[in-house]
Amino acid sequence: METSAGDLILFAEEEQRLVALLDRLCQEAKARAAFLIDRNGHLIAASGRAADLDTTSLASLAAGGMAATGGIAQLVGERGFSGLVLEGERSHLYIAIVRDDLILVVHFDRTSSVGLVRFRVRWASDEIGRAFAVMAEQSRTHADPGPTDLQNQLAQITDEDIENLLSI
């Protein structure tokens, strides 16, 4: 769910739903791995052979790359570019914008193709958009104990906790 300040909070059930979508995307696109990240470069969910990669760096660089691509789009009079294909010798990346504020990254090799990945990403983008809409609706209509519990826990943070945390 997204807070009024624009912060994103992901609860266990929501994460499971997103990972299940990415699992299906990996399977149907014959991809090595798929990641969902936000525009600020935070990794939201991952599937496939994600453990083989430095996902933190990948998320940050993909977000930076898509931000730059969006800037280029505006310079040439486009509202944005919806996807970006990065071709390597052994593997490739397809990076797509989802719902304007999320980025889907698919890592694939010769067992798949750009066409197949792009086709499956279109399906996954719609599903992810729907999943986020459901999450937003649930957070409005249900008395989900998650957010309250989280707020309570964060409210209990003291200056001393922060001092102890930063023993750097």
Binding site: G41, D54, T56, S57, S60, L61, G64, A68, Q153, L154, Q156, I157, D161, I162, N164, L165, L166, S167, I168
Partner: peptide, 30 residues
């Protein structure tokens, strides 16, 4: 406590796009 330091810089080591460093500062209230 740290990830990779990534620097997107020019040949003369001036920052071209950004530097990035992920840090793990510890645990607070779990």
């Amino acid at each position: 406590a740290k990830g990779k330091l990534i620097s997107l810089s020019t040949e003369t080591e001036r920052t071209l796009f950004f530097d990035f460093l992920p840090l793990d500062l510890g645990t607070i209230r779990g």
